[in-house]
Amino acid sequence: MASKTTNLVADWDPNRAAEIISAHLGLEGPALPILHGLQAAFGCVPSEAIPMVAKALNRSRAEIHGVVTFYHDFREAPAGKTVVKLCRAEACQAVGGREAASFLLASLGIGWGETTPDGAVTVEAVYCLGLCAAAPAALVNGQPHGRLDGMSLIEAVAEETQP
């Protein structure tokens, strides 16, 4: 089935999506585990998957769309190669988190939630990683980094983006 958003998800595979959906159908309240599974496989929740999820759960497409768009985590298109989840919350603010974030965003030339034009880095705001005693903190491709400042944050990102 061709779709206008096929170009968003290069490796879209309806069979793989169907497998992910059916693997979770035995759970009580399977919607979020399914959506997490789809995003883990495709880097986002592909729009093609939404009617499939709706059908499997006997819910309307609108309902599933509503669930996907409610949660900050679920993306409609894949993120950049390196994803920086940078904490914006108070404990990080108290030790220079705002300044470190501005430094990174300015050096990448992007804003919150944006991806660099070459698709290398996406910076997402998160509100607390539970690293508040080692703030400011970020997860760079899932790797935790604490006691950051602007420079060490850029280094942490550079380390991940190196080939």
Partner: peptide, 23 residues
């Protein structure tokens, strides 16, 4: 179960809705 980045799901009834697979 793992949430999906919504602070309000720490509120108990929102959490239950989320567990049920809703907004």
């Amino acid at each position: 179960r793992v949430g999906a980045g919504a602070y309000v799901c720490g509120e108990e009834t929102a959490l239950l809705e989320s567990l049920e697979g809703k907004r």
